[in-house]
């Protein structure tokens, strides 16, 4: 039982990170019906930028917000410069552009930072040593990740549900043509969506960097788990993405331990099994809206 709880704690912490990146995927998918295959690499590159700031002596609590702002701006720039021109092009074209993003940021990171892993510190004020409660060890950083996720969810909830900008963001995503007719600048809303997604992705990268090692491919596996999370939660549901992420984190942690042949080497297989299962049983995911086709 102790081991089970221990696994759930670790799985949930990892799941929060998958959920964050899944949230980024969902925010973009919902508004533009594009799956941004470059999302993980944009997050990876943002994490390197943050590492550079830290390496130059900047404090954690300055470097991280600054990185998030830059990632936000970069997300907007990517949308306006690369995505907007192909927005109405066939899907394959858009997929290729986002794969191009993947390759671009991956090579750029390799070129600037080399493939040698970089150590990434824990946030200042979060201690390394774990607390012991009975037989269970609680890692402070895991709680930190969880708290960051909850805070971000609350902020996004208020933004989307309680502000005029949020109403515009949701409307532009759901019905661009009608939104134009009420005077919403739809192109800007889509760009802002990319900015928010890029910032959420960057946060996922920054949060996972102290746990795994920072190297140019470190987000690749996380991106696969995030796809599984978004598929499970529903590609059009931001809360679904986060719940899906936490579920996938736990499925991977528990599956790796209790299903004998999986171990830690085959955990990607678990993600793929989830993706296939969801697509077969409930294609819209747990929280997604089932699209009812009129015939």
């Amino acid at each position: 039982m102790t081991e089970f709880i221990q696994l759930v704690l670790a799985g949930t912490a990892n799941g929060c990170i998958y959920g964050l990146l899944a949230l980024a995927l969902v925010l973009i998918y919902r508004s533009t019906h594009i799956i941004n295959f470059g999302q993980g690499e944009m997050a990876m590159f943002s994490t390197y930028i943050c590492w550079s700031f830290l390496n130059a002596g900047m404090g954690y609590w300055v470097a991280v917000p600054l990185t998030l702002i830059l990632a936000f701006a970069a997300g907007i720039a990517v949308q306006r410069i690369l995505i907007r021109p192909v927005q109405n092009a066939p899907e394959l074209t858009i997929v290729i552009v986002t794969l191009g993003l993947y390759l671009f940021f991956n090579s750029l990171a390799l070129w600037i930072y080399s493939g040698v892993p970089k150590p990434f510190p824990l946030p200042t004020g979060i201690r390394q040593a774990s607390w012991q409660v009975g037989d269970i060890f609680i890692i402070p950083y895991h709680l930190f990740i969880f708290a960051v996720l909850i805070t971000l969810m609350a902020v996004l909830y208020v933004l989307f549900q309680r502000t005029k900008l949020g109403l515009g963001l949701r409307a532009a995503a759901a019905q661009p043509a009608s939104s134009r007719l009420v005077g919403i600048n739809v192109n800007w809303m889509l760009a802002l969506g990319w900015g928010i997604a890029a910032a959420a992705g960057a946060l996922a990268g920054i949060l996972s960097a102290p746990v795994v090692q920072l190297e140019p491919n470190f987000m690749a596996t996380i991106l696969i788990f995030s796809f599984a999370s978004a598929t499970l939660g529903g590609f059009d549901s931001p809360p679904g993405a986060v719940v899906g992420g936490i579920a996938i984190g736990n499925i991977v942690a528990l599956g790796g331990r209790y299903i004998e042949f999986i171990g830690t080497q085959l955990d990607i297989v678990l993600a793929l099994v989830v993706i296939v299962a969801v697509l077969l049983i409930r294609p819209a995911g747990l929280f997604g809206r089932q699209v009812v086709q009129r015939v």
């Binding site: 005029k164 109403l167 515009g168 949701r170 409307a171 759901a174 019905q175 043509a177 009608s178 939104s179 007719l181 009420v182 005077g183 919403i184």
Partner: peptide
């Protein structure tokens, strides 16, 4: 041009965007 997934009141607020 109804915003189908939004409430009636949200539709009116959108009209005043």
């Amino acid at each position: 041009g109804t915003f189908t997934d939004f409430t009636v009141e949200e539709n009116l607020l959108l009209g005043a965007y």
